[in-house]
Design a protein around this nucleic acid. Structure first.
Lengths: 184, 184
DNA sequence: CACCATACATGATGCCTGTCATGTATTCAA
DNA sequence: TTGAATACATGACAGGCATCATGTATGGTG
């Protein structure tokens, strides 16, 4: 290689960082390859030295965000209180207003369903996420822990998506508060 | 007017029909104005005789789909059984596989949050939908009927979105089934 | 019957986008 | 020290897009 391998690998990671942030903020179609490269301090040219296509970057971006999401989840105390805090943060106004740093399911799930390559990458994420969520926290109804986890996740994702889609802070807050009140 | 007013109005409705279907199937960015016009049997030219811009069509398309959604909801029997049937249909594989005819929240909410004009239109829909949903069905916990309705909606929307984003029918079915089992 | 308003088709324009071609500079390996 | 491989910048290209311009045909109105 002609450029320092370490720096190249770091640039690769920066592209993934910026891509997964920008995609979550504006959607796949709302961000161009050139914009992502510019955000990492490069020009649009060397993109194809790093990724085969924009769709490949989307799939890799999902995997990248997934790893961070799972790391964060595993760092939460595996107790009832830990779960309550996790849910409360998930359903907070801060999270609602920072999609670029937040849950990739809530930010991109609708668009993911239309991109086959990305869909495969996301499926792996969701499987791991459900498994981790189920095993990491205690569940009163032990015989149906996984079912309870799935229901909790569905509520969280749905509530966050609806709260973000609404132009009225009162309604958005109400949705987050009501769902939080029965999950926290 | 030079063309029969009735036919023109009917074409206007057809544009809205096709637009709201195609948008739900492929997302706002995934459908072009020309494609929508072609789907109605017209060419791309007269689009701007009917709508001020693509964004205006998106907002109108939301309103159009909202009216149909609310009409359908009000036609369901206002009983516990009616609600169960409604939820079961919402969380069915048929609904999952037919986004073009289905819930506009599940199909477009993620993208709506990024389009201010559309967001305003959607806010009106969600307010009306929550109100209708709350008032139309009986709720055991009368003092918190609205909260229960919001929680139920969040679960339904989240589950459907996740089920659609997944490339694995077993997992998708599991999500729908688990959420249905505690709501139906 | 004549006129005017307007919804239509065709076509053009300018912009943005994903992708590829080319030349260059540099670092690692020999 | 030299050569070769490669990540970079610049630039080009073709396609698609929203939007607008123009001409035309038509039906309701006077």
């Amino acid at each position: 290689m002609r450029y320092p391998a370490a720096e190249t690998a770091e640039k690769h990671q920066r592209i993934l960082d910026e891509a997964s942030r920008l995609f979550r903020e504006r959607g796949f179609a709302g961000v161009s390859v050139g914009e992502i490269m510019k955000a990492t301090g490069l020009t649009h040219g060397p993109f194809y030295n790093h990724f085969a296509s924009k769709q490949a970057l989307m799939a890799e971006g999902i995997r990248h965000a997934s790893e961070k999401t799972l790391t964060d989840l595993r760092a939460v105390p595996g107790t009832g209180e830990g779960r309550s805090a996790y849910v409360a943060r998930y359903l907070s106004a801060d999270h609602r207003d920072a999609p670029g740093q937040g849950c990739l399911m809530a930010a991109l799930a609708c668009e993911i369903s239309r991109e086959p390559e990305v869909k495969r990458s996301f499926t792996l994420h969701l499987k791991t996420y459900i498994d981790t969520f189920t095993r990491h926290f205690p569940w009163p109804r032990k015989q149906d822990a996984r079912g309870d986890a799935i229901r909790m996740l569905s509520s969280m994702v749905g509530a966050l998506i609806l709260a973000r889609a609404v132009d009225d802070d009162v309604l958005a807050d109400e949705i987050l508060r009501e769902v939080k009140s029965k999950l926290g």
